[in-house]
Structures are given as C-alpha cells and as structure tokens.
Design a protein around this nucleic acid. Structure first.
Lengths: 343, 343
DNA sequence: GGTTGTTTCGAAAACGTTTTCGATAAAATA
DNA sequence: TATTTTATCGAAAACGTTTTCGAAACAACC
C-alpha cells in the first residue's frame, strides 16, 4: 500500500507542498477556503505524516526509554504502567529495556537509547551498578534523565524516590506498637542503597524506643528469595527462640519466612509478627495476609515521567534545569501478620 | 553537544560523504587504506549515525510495538520479557502499549503504532474486543502482525498460542486421577475464547472418564478476582457440600477459593482439591501451594517475536507470507493443593 | 595503439517533512 | 494617484543518510 505524501495532496489540488504542510499544521497564512480543501483531501486520502521525516526535521522522536532491572516484578511493572499512562497523555511512546541487575547490560541499554536518540531516559539502577560513566554520557549528550527508586545520589539529575529509611522506621515502629520486644531484621545486600536505608530505619526505631539494638538479630540475605526467607527464619528461630517480630526487607522473603515459621509450629502473628516491604501483589491474598509498606509504583512512574517531560520542555526552550528530587509518601498497610490477638 | 555527521568526517579527511558512508558500512569499493582512516576518525570523533535519517532513508525503524491488556500481570510481563530479550538479539527495540481490556483503547493503540511506522506489531486481544477492523487496517498497511495467547481466529496472521482445551483437560484429569468424583469448574466470561476452551476441556475430561457432567457445577465468574473466588467457593460449598474438586479458570481466583474453603473449615486438598491455571508467581509460595497449569509466557514472547522477525524479513524480500500458528506446550504442575494424603 | 577490465572515488538524487524568506496581488491608507 | 499594509502563496534549503551511476586512472591483454 502506497503511503500518501504531502506532495501527492499538493498535486491533486494544484497547490504547493508548502501550503499543504501549513494548512495541516494550522498556520494562519493560508486561506480558509484552501485550508478546508486540503484538510478534506488529506482525510479522504487517509494521509499520515511520515514520522521518519518529521523526526529528522524536528530532531525529536516523541519517544522515551526506560531501563529497569526486571520487568517481571510487581513494583516495576506498576512503574511502567504509570509511565506509559502519563506518557500517552503527552503523546509520547515508551521503549522498555531491562538491565537484569547487571551493570554491563545497563551500560549497553543506555548506549542503545542514546543511539536511538530518544527524547528522554528513565532509569532505576541495577543492583550491580557502582559507577556512573554511562549516566554521565547521557548528560553529556544533553538527553533529559530521571532516576527513580534505585538512584545514584552522585548523578546530578531529577529523581523520584520514597524515603526508605522513614518507611522502614514506621514498619519497625508498628511491630513495637503491637507489643514486640525482640525484633529481628532480614536485610538486603550492600547494594542497592535501599537495603542500607531500610536497615537504618529499623535501627533508629529500635534505638528510639528503648529496645536494645542487637546486631545478631540482623541477618544479611544475598539473593532475597522465598527460599532464603524460609532458611533464615529457621536459623533465626534456632538462634533466638524468643524472637517475637521480624521486619523483612521485602515481601517475597517475608512470605518465605512465614511459611517456615508456620512449619515449625509457631504462630504468625501471635508468636512472631512479620512485616514486609513493597506490598507485592501476593501479600494481600496469602494466609495470614502480610502487613507491609506500600510502595506507590504507579504514582512513581507518573511522577517520573512528569519530571522528564518538564525537562524535555525546558531543554527545547534552551533553559537550564535545576535537578530536584521528589519524595513520595508510603503507607503502612496493616494486615493479619501483625495483628496479635488479645491475650 | 554537537552531533558528528558524515559530512564532518568527510571534510576532515578530504573525501566525499559517499566514501565515508561506504567505508563505515563495509562496501568493498573503497580502498583499504582510506577505509581504515575513516573508521579511525569516526571512532575518534565518537560518530553516531543519525537514526532519524537512516529511518527515513531505509524506511524502517528497527522498532516493534506490542499491545497487551495489562502490564501489571505475571503472565503478560513474562511475555514482554521474552519479546524484549529476543528482539534485542536482532537489534530491535520494543514499544509497549496497554489496552486495559478495552476495545476502544486497543484501537487507539493500533493507530499509534501504525502512525509510528513500527516494523511490526505484536498483540494479545483485550477481553472486550469482538470485531477486528483495526487489525485488518494493520494488514492493509502491510505491517507484519503476530497475535499471541488471546487471538482472533478470523484474522489471517501468524499466531502463538497454547492449547487451552487440552491443558484444561489435563488439569481436570489430574483431579480425577487423585480421586475426585464430583468436580466443579469456575469458568470465565464468554470473551475471550480462552474461557470457553478451558470449559470445553473440563467438560471433555468429565465425559471421557464416566463422571456425569452437571452444568450446575459450572460457575461463570465475570471479573475473575480474588474476591469472586472466595464468594463462589462459599456458594459452591453451600449448594454442593459434597464437592471434592475444583478446576479454576485462573490462579488468582483459585487462591481466593482456597481461602474461603479454609475459612469454612474444609481442608484443601483432602476435602476439596483445587487446581488453577496459568501458574501465577504467588501459586508456588502460598500455603497450601497451588497445583496449576504452567503457561510459558517467556517462551511465548520469544516465539512471537521470532515469527514477527521472519515476517519482517520476508516482507523486505517482497515474498508472500503464509500465516501459521505455533502451539506451545503447557505443563501440569502438581503442588500441595491436589495431593490428598492417603486415607 | 586500441580495447577491455579493475579499482577507487564522488556527484547527485532520493527519502518527506518543516520553515524561512520573498513574491505577488489585493486592500487600505495617505 | 502613490504608498503602505495585509493576505496568501510557493521556491528552496535543510535535516543526514543511502545508493545508483558514471567518471577517472591505471593495468592488462591482444
């Protein structure tokens, strides 16, 4: 099927390509009468502008890229949904790439997006990433960049995050509020920063409420899997049979922990209360349902795109941008796993 | 930052743009000596071809689009992952759009992708979709199209599916194998086709094994939610207290059903065995873990892209394509929810 | 010496749009 | 009538690449 061009519309109406282009783009230096004719003819021929030519001429693609560690993940797919929803409103399409938590892959994806000449890039860091040359390259190319959730503090760009420390504090405080006296923490590895922040929130809550912080009660998990959750829950109960609460770095691990606790004939929440983090989809539907911290993925995606969009606009106008960081609120979601029955 | 062009490389070496282009693209009518110089200079200046110009010239974007009903969904995000992985190997990027199960949105997304002049389109139908003008438009525009999972039999294009009927048959047969005599079915609405096929598979298994098919044991769920699963499980037990097995159209609903069954002090699997469909992520981590049918999302994404890629290649060569349908195998995954203890 | 073949290069067209700038004619003003 | 203003149009350049076609220079052959 032959694609209709401006030239053909122009020929069929005996006007110039220029006039056709102007008419269709609403310039005011074209007669109302001819404009009407042109628009009609364009519709009649089912004219669709050749986007490649438009891109070349305008130097923009109306496309952005997003790099995330993992697509098959409730939080990140929520972010994607938010980004796509917001982008569509502004006429932008979204290219998705995964880093698989690998720094090398992340670099490659950045390269791809730069070569693709996207109008902007959204990134959540891979766990492995510990240096930022590739992001500096984005900035050097003057491509608008927004980081979200897993960010690099050193890179000077717009950011959207939650306050992991505060959220972790609230989760731990909730355990204290329901009467826990000896609270363990299953933490994540030293990268990304989030694991550290959540640990710090836990520690601060412990300290603030006159419980004694005990580093033996903090377990460092490397892979953050269901199985690890099971394993460390067993280990914990073995080493500290009198533990009565666990704040777990992420829901999946918490679910594994609950499984192990139940298998050992302890009761959640009465013997051991458990609270997770992120509000994975499953947390609401398991038994007992899991208390957790809601991480607003969809909203984060929306906000990240909004920031990116603003930056794109500013860049077009040639204005300077002063990077800012948006901090989104989190909610404590209380479910069965922390509601001890009155004893 | 000024972008380097062929012209600039040419100027700095006193050769023509043509020669530079040819050297970088490996044409053989350019002297080895000059080629070396050009390649070196290009690297030195960090030359990156202007993709917009390349697109315009070659009439292809090395980008494909995929439209799915919902991003935040284990199966569909697995598909996306498969598509992206395979596409990247072939140098293609992937634009993701959602239909939110709405026909109108689906049409709009198709329109966006056509206007974007993507090299190919991947689609899984929205539940609402009951006519196919927009897909015919894709075909009219001679854009390669592959449908997967939720397909339209009437549209003549490549397809990747599972055999829902056979898989449902196997699930139901498994219940029969573990000793169930009175098996209910929670089915989905009349669209998409998958619900019908799964129901047919259930019915065939019942008929084939000398159990009496009873339409009263088939419950039609409209929204396929956790809550519906709970509601209909209660209803079922109320109406048929002697039911001893349920084949549920999808895992989420099955999880809801299990919850209700437990709350009513029936035991899963001993009183009532439950099997789901799709192998959602949560199914492996709940207690009791849920038996189900594994739907190979990642593999489906890979195969779908492979088909699309073949079609793109054929189109370039101007050859005709004869649409085919790939049927992927499914696996019966036996977990706790159907393993009755020896009585 | 004339013919053919080979190697190496570049001019130019083409892809389809956007936008600047000037031309023309008609209308308004002096 | 002469001059300025306004409305309407189009030529042409530009965006940066790819590719065709022919030119030039030289070697090889009879």
């Amino acid at each position: 099927m032959k694609q209709i061009t401006l030239k053909e519309i122009a020929a069929s109406l005996n006007v110039s390509v220029t006039t056709v282009s102007k008419a269709l783009k609403g310039y005011k230096d074209v007669n109302e009468e001819t404009k009407k004719l042109i628009i009609q003819k364009a519709k009649e021929l089912n004219y669709k502008p050749n986007i490649f030519a438009v891109n070349l001429r305008t130097k923009e693609s109306k496309t952005i890229g997003i790099i995330i560690p993992e697509v098959v993940h409730h939080f990140f797919s929520s972010v994607i949904k938010g980004v796509i929803a917001q982008a569509e409103k502004k006429g932008y399409l979204v290219i998705i790439l995964q880093s698989n938590e690998s720094k090398e892959l992340e670099k490659k994806q950045v390269e791809l997006l730069i070569n693709k000449r996207v109008d902007g890039i959204l990134v959540s860091l891979a766990n492995e990433t510990n240096s930022y040359e590739h992001f500096y390259e984005i900035l050097q190319n003057e491509i608008p960049l927004v980081m979200f959730d897993k960010i690099a503090k050193l890179v000077k760009c717009n950011k959207v995050i939650i306050n992991d420390q505060k959220a972790a504090y609230n989760a731990t405080k909730h355990l204290i509020d329901v009467g826990c006296k000896k609270i363990a923490h299953f933490r994540g590895p030293h990268l990304p920063q989030n694991s550290i922040d959540r640990f710090l929130g836990y520690k601060k809550a412990i300290d603030d409420h006159y419980l004694t912080y005990n580093s033996k009660l903090v377990y460092l998990l490397e892979k953050m899997t269901f199985k690890e959750g099971e394993y460390f829950a067993r280990k914990l109960i073995n080493e500290h049979p009198d533990v009565d609460g666990i704040f777990v770095n992420t829901d999946l691990v918490a679910v594994g922990a609950i499984k192990a606790i139940n298998d050992l004939d302890f009761n959640v929440p009465n013997d051991i209360a458990v609270i997770g983090f992120s509000n994975w989809f499953m947390s609401a539907v398991i038994s007992p349902s899991l208390s957790t911290i809601n991480q607003p993925g969809f909203e984060m995606g929306k906000q990240a795109f909004k920031l990116l969009f603003k930056e794109i606009k500013l860049k077009k106008k040639g204005e300077e941008i002063k990077p800012k960081t948006i901090e989104l609120g989190t909610d404590l979601i209380i479910r069965e796993s922390t509601q001890k029955s009155v004893s």
